[in-house]
Computed example of a mutant assay.
Amino acid sequence: MQVRPEFIRGVAEVEVTPRGIRPHRLPAWVREQFPDGQLLSMENQPSGVRVVFRTAASAFDLVVHPTRIAYVGTDRPRGRIDVYADGGLVVRDVLDGGDRFEVDLASGDSTLHPGPAHTTRVSGLPEGRHRIEVWLPHNESVELVELRADAPVEPDDVDLPQWVHHGSSISQGSNALAPSEIWPAVAARRAGVELRNLGLGGSAFVDPFLARVIRDAPADYVSVKLGINVVNLDGMRLRVFVPAVHGFLDTIRDGHPDVPLLLISPLFCGIHEDTPGPGAIDPASIGTGQVRFVATGTPHDVALGRLTLQVIRRELRSLVERRAADRNLHFLDGTSLYGATDAAELPLPDGLHPSPEAHQRIGARFAEYAFTGTGPFARPPAGGVA
């Protein structure tokens, strides 16, 4: 049978393709309004997206057709599919086959290499009815071709609180090895909430259309992590950035006036702490198997309004303080999730993105901060999903 849309969680919509259906994390109106190649590539990768169903089957197959981007001279791990049964991991399956777009970073040329579909097989499930949750890859796009099982499958009826999170490639899961181990997934699984992940690699630019997507999304909790991509691109000066964030939050509040809203400043990143962007790939790292990033700005340019991570943290904290009338707006310093001490212990492998171990640490710390005790998301949702 074809995977039914009602089985898919964490998406804006699905697209019918000749092979099956493709999950999209952003709605069609965004993709049509701003068809940026980087944005389209990232929203097409189903980070945080799950196929969820109930079944008494002892075995099932999920057939997908992956599409990935590979870089000449750089070793990038393949995507994975994680399968949970009743909350326990039963299969972690590394993708093979699929289509490969190979990009030469030196020349900019790209070549398409077609490949076959991939089948994730699950067998030996114990007798009884199970809740199955299949986490799709965070770093490759997939078309869902077919779901085969030895017993009927039905939609899941569990109604969990909805957490919508927006951020950069770190939130999408860059450098994490498995889709359920990206830091937002780690936090969501610990907290027992339904994740809608709008982490978009290289695309967290305080874009008004993203604020509209969040405004219109069902949400019991909302978090927004802003700053690192703005510095990477050197896309804004201080005078423009602060009002843009105000407008971003105002738009979210138009749809969610009372939902707990958490503004998160950037994690520690040594290359941009005191040095503005733009960021760039270190040419010396091309072909070494591990691309590294560098900052190309100069620290004294801060006086001209150019942004560093330290400037952004200061300004976001001040911005939330000036919006004190909004009692459900909260601020979290990103260095409390991953700071300089963490970077010394668990360095950023490429100078920009956390390691798999750091994703686990960030997710655990976020869950502890946000969803327990007096945290901003600790209280049960009031009045249900908007």
Rank of each mutant, 00 (worst) to 15 (best):
Q172I: 08
G173D: 00
N175W: 11
N175P: 07
A176K: 01
L177M: 12
L177R: 13
L177S: 13
A178Q: 13
A178R: 12
P179A: 07
S180R: 01
I182W: 04
I182V: 15
W183P: 06
A185V: 07
A185W: 03
V186K: 03
A187F: 09
A188D: 07
R189C: 06
A191R: 10
V193Q: 01
V193P: 00
L195E: 01
L195T: 03
R196I: 14
N197I: 01
N197W: 00
L198H: 09
G199N: 05
G199M: 06
G202K: 05
S203P: 02
S203V: 07
F205R: 15
F205Y: 10
V206R: 07
P208Y: 11
P208S: 07
L210A: 05
A211P: 02
R212N: 00
D216P: 02
D216Q: 11
P218L: 06
V224A: 13
L226K: 04
G227L: 04
G227W: 04
N229D: 14
N229G: 10
V230H: 03
V230P: 02
V231M: 03
V231G: 06
N232C: 14
N232P: 00
L233P: 02
D234G: 15
M236N: 12
M236I: 02
M236W: 09
R239P: 02
R239I: 11
R239Q: 15
R239V: 14
P243C: 15
A244T: 12
A244Y: 08
V245W: 08
V245E: 02
H246G: 13
G247C: 02
L249Y: 03
L249V: 10
I252K: 06
I252Y: 06
R253S: 04
D254S: 12
D254K: 13
D254H: 12
G255T: 11
P257I: 13
P257R: 13
D258R: 15
D258Q: 13
P260L: 10
P260K: 14
L262A: 15
I264S: 07
L267W: 03
L267P: 00
F268N: 00
E273R: 10
D274M: 08
T275C: 09
P276Y: 00
P278L: 06
P278W: 03
P278V: 06
G279N: 02
G279P: 08
G279E: 05
A280C: 10
D282Y: 01
S285I: 02
I286W: 09
G287F: 05
T288F: 11
T288D: 06
G289A: 08
G289S: 02
G289N: 12
G289L: 10
Q290N: 15
V291W: 09
R292T: 15
A295Y: 07
